[in-house]
């Protein structure tokens, strides 16, 4: 019944928006719960960006937390060291992270599967090390403070700004994956040969995917910096990259709602398990294993199944051949 109701897109989105608007009041303006919500937004943006790259484009990245770190430090440097205002610093952080994404994307274009995985893994591992050792710019171990924007006096209004930004980014990414650009990404994932034959420049679009994905992830990192007011080298390490990867597979590959579901799930689990040391990893790990064993297409497939039954035209059985679906991403 609830599943049926959630299929109504407008209703679901409307409910979500109302929930986000009243959330601070629900939790009594508690700083802890507002932070939990913002962290969820950050992971939602990151997992949508990663899903664009992996789920839609078929290009693996196991180092996406590196882009979060770059975004966070960009905001710190731009706001504190350079002194730029919020509305300049945040998009600039995205652009700076996007440029790093371009640098990573250029060699990554030549690599496939495990080779790409190890290259991006190296990136994710290296960023914290570089940040740690580039004292002059990053403050090394001690991290950097982020100047909070004065125009929104309290965390309360900042919360709404970030919610609005998250909603806008969701809309932008949704538009991109539904467009000719998104189709080019999927085409590359499904058949590079056919993609080239219909005029898709593979290297260009692979690089573009990396740039778009890292741009939005950089913004997410920037949101983190502004919300916490402080960035340090170990905020986002390689295990965070793994976590985002788990989010998109568990939520659902090539699905924006799936990315969000995964992000919510894995951001909220630690809230319930944190009081027992070491349990968080076990619970998340078991959740990952179980969901993939029993719902290989992710949680989002729970919703889609009912839908497909409705869409399938009746009486066309003889034309339809049950074909095995091709593998998703070339990893």
């Amino acid at each position: 019944m609830i599943l049926k109701l959630l299929e109504n897109k407008r209703l679901t989105i409307g409910l979500l928006v109302v929930f986000m608007l009243i959330y601070p009041f629900l939790v009594g303006n508690s700083n802890y719960f507002m932070t939990l919500f913002v962290i969820t937004c950050i992971y939602a943006i990151t997992s949508m960006s990663l899903n664009l790259l992996i789920g839609y484009g078929g290009q693996i990245s196991v180092g996406h937390a590196g882009f979060l770190t770059v975004g966070g430090y960009s905001v710190a440097i731009l706001s504190s060291t350079v002194g730029l205002p919020f509305f300049l610093a945040l998009p600039l952080a995205g652009i700076m992270t996007g440029s790093i994404g371009l640098l990573i994307g250029l060699p990554a274009v030549r690599l496939k599967g495990h080779f790409l995985a190890v290259a991006t893994l190296g990136f994710g591992l290296s960023i914290p090390q570089i940040v740690l050792n580039w004292d002059g710019l990053t403050g090394g171990y001690s991290g950097l403070a982020v100047t909070k924007p004065l125009m929104f006096g309290s965390d309360f209004s900042l919360f709404y700004v970030f919610v609005v930004i998250t909603v806008i980014i969701t809309w932008l990414i949704q538009n991109i994956v539904k467009s000719s650009l998104g189709r080019a990404f999927i085409a590359i994932r499904d058949s590079e040969v056919a993609a080239q034959a219909i005029g898709i420049n593979i290297s260009f679009y692979k690089t573009t995917m990396f740039v778009i994905s890292s741009f939005f992830t950089g913004i997410a990192g920037g949101i983190y910096g502004y919300w916490v007011g402080f960035v340090s080298p170990n905020d986002f390490i390689i295990t965070n990259s793994f976590l985002v990867l788990a989010m998109i597979v568990v939520g659902g590959l090539a699905s924006i709602p799936g990315s969000i579901i995964g992000a919510v799930l894995f951001s909220v689990i630690p809230h319930f398990t944190d009081s027992y040391i070491g349990i968080t990893n076990i619970v998340i790990g078991i959740a990952v294993v179980l969901i993939i064993l029993f719902k290989p297409d992710g949680i989002v497939s729970l919703f889609k199944m009912n839908k497909q039954k409705l869409v399938k035209p009746a009486g066309k059985g003889e034309l339809l051949v049950q074909g095995g679906e091709k593998e998703n991403a070339n990893i």
Binding site: I186, V193, A194
Partner: peptide, 10 residues
């Protein structure tokens, strides 16, 4: 293409 190179999930 000889063996059909479609984008299978589309």
């Amino acid at each position: 293409f000889q063996n059909v190179e479609l984008f299978t999930k589309m």
